[in-house]
Design a protein around this nucleic acid. Structure first.
Lengths: 292, 292
DNA sequence: CCCCGTCAATAACTTATAGTTATCATACCA
DNA sequence: TGGTATGATAACTATAAGTTATTGACGGGG
């Protein structure tokens, strides 16, 4: 019992004529005869009554017709669904995004991607930057949007944007007119950082450590807005990606010397077959010119 | 996209192993490889990830698997349904039964048939004996259980039983001790008959007419029991199939001279493909020894 | 009433494709 | 690092789906 045979049977049942069905299906009439006979042979009884001029369904044929039509409809529906996946008008994938990137890189990326692929669904796992790489490794997510570690053992990656980290000072701070600043100059300033577990905090503290310095952390938070407001009020200085702060009253941005950069990108597991939707996202990000 | 291909895909998905699937399906492993490749080629993307040791479903593969399983399940269900029809554990047919036969021939036949084929459904159209033949001709019913007309133009028929029509008299009637009776002897007796439209009434009146007689109809009814009770009470005489009356107090049955018979049988349209259930019924009736 | 046109069945043959065997490439395990 | 298990590939075979040509049967129109 074959899909083709069901198709032939349904067409003959509709047209009540073997020859007409053969034409419609672009095959010869004996092919239809043969297929119907094979079907009847398999089932053990006749489906079509060919004794009269018109082809008529037997009672069993009527029952079989409705079953066959149902199967063909589901077959067609299944094909359409898969075509949607192929056309990227349907699909899902999972992406890990740590809070920092989720805050100001991802929204833009996501919005632009959605414009190109409005039907694709993205499942965002916001599970901290440190675990994002692990999630990709364990295949719990298909891609991760992360701050790229210096060495990536066995993951593919694609750089999206390299953001400079700048010092944020109150406008009336004595150092606010310098063209650039060194960690040595900032060693005694109280600093405001992200909470423990955030990548940016780790990076800043590691930089201080490079010069043998241990800064005095005045306060830590996980709120972006809070950091900016506290800097404006003169509570302390901070370090933020240049683009994340546009124009804020009473806050001056000064580059570090030497420059400090934050590389952000996509990572995914090679040799792993990704959902088409995820491939589309990776390709999209590849061609996406992120405004620096 | 073929049913066989879906089967192969589902089996591989279950076992997560091409070779094992090939064994289970009693074919060679390359046949599986080929079929899966063909499927993937058609769909335009991979369904199975074969890069690792174990075969894994891709995200699209998971979706397709559930669709494929649904289609296969429906295919199997359709086959089972048709097997039931073949095995006569499912099926329906329509039969026309006029009231007279419906009253005392059909119940026995129906009960015995049901014993042999408990799952078959019979749709009884009780539409008067005269129209039963027409219903068969017009294919509104598959068979008719009728009083066989002397000539059947283009219908097949099978005699079930030939019942003698006997005169029913009150036991104390002056003619009740005769060995047989002629219509001449009965010409002045008030008679009790079935209502207009019943075949038996027509037959009795036609017999009277044969001898140039017009009987006096005392009363007509469509109730069997009423006729018997009225005869017992001495209201009049009647004519009934011999077997339809067993032992009734105060009623004597006397054969007619010449004997009058009622032939009952099945009729159906030749060259017309009947439901298997109906064929089973005709065959059953053919072999059924109806107690005379 | 018979002939002609229509339509399905059949036969003989061809083509397509599903399946086979043999072999290779690769990933995992010890 | 070599051995085993497993899927891919190639070349071939067998099956069955499809083709053309033809026959046979039914039904409507002259």
């Amino acid at each position: 019992m074959d899909i083709r045979e069901l198709e032939y049977f349904v067409t003959v049942s509709e047209l009540k004529n073997f020859t007409a069905a053969a034409h419609k299906l672009h095959i010869s009439q004996p092919a239809i005869s043969k297929a119907i006979h094979k079907l009847e042979e398999e089932l053990g009884f006749q489906l079509l009554d060919r004794t009269q001029k018109k082809v008529l369904l037997t009672e069993e044929g009527v029952v079989f017709l409705s079953l066959a039509e149902d199967i063909l409809a589901r077959m067609a529906a299944a094909q359409n669904t898969m075509i949607e996946y192929k056309n990227l008008t349907r699909g899902t994938f999972r992406i890990a995004v740590p809070p920092l990137l989720g805050a100001y890189v991802f929204p833009q990326l996501f919005a632009d991607f959605k414009k190109s692929y409005p039907s694709l669904e993205m499942s965002v796992i916001e599970d901290g930057s440190s675990t994002a790489v692990d999630l990709v490794q364990q295949e719990d997510v298909h891609v991760g949007l992360v701050i790229l570690p210096p060495t990536l053992t066995d993951l593919h990656s694609h750089l999206i944007t390299s953001q400079e980290i700048v010092v944020c000072l109150p406008t009336d701070h004595p150092l606010s007119s310098q063209p650039f600043l060194t960690f040595e100059q900032l060693k005694d300033e109280p600093i405001i950082l992200y909470n423990e577990g955030f990548v940016l905090r780790r990076i800043i503290l590691d930089e201080y450590a490079k010069y043998g310095l241990v800064p005095r952390v005045a306060l830590s938070t996980n709120q972006f807005q809070t950091i900016k407001a506290l800097v404006a009020k003169g509570v302390g200085i901070s370090f933020l990606p240049k683009n994340s702060i546009k124009v804020v009253n009473h806050v001056t941005k000064i580059p570090l010397h030497p420059h400090l950069f934050l590389e952000m990108g996509l990572i995914w597991k090679p040799n792993k077959i990704l959902p088409l939707a995820c491939k589309a996202f990776i390709d999209f990000v590849n061609e996406f010119e992120y405004v620096k």
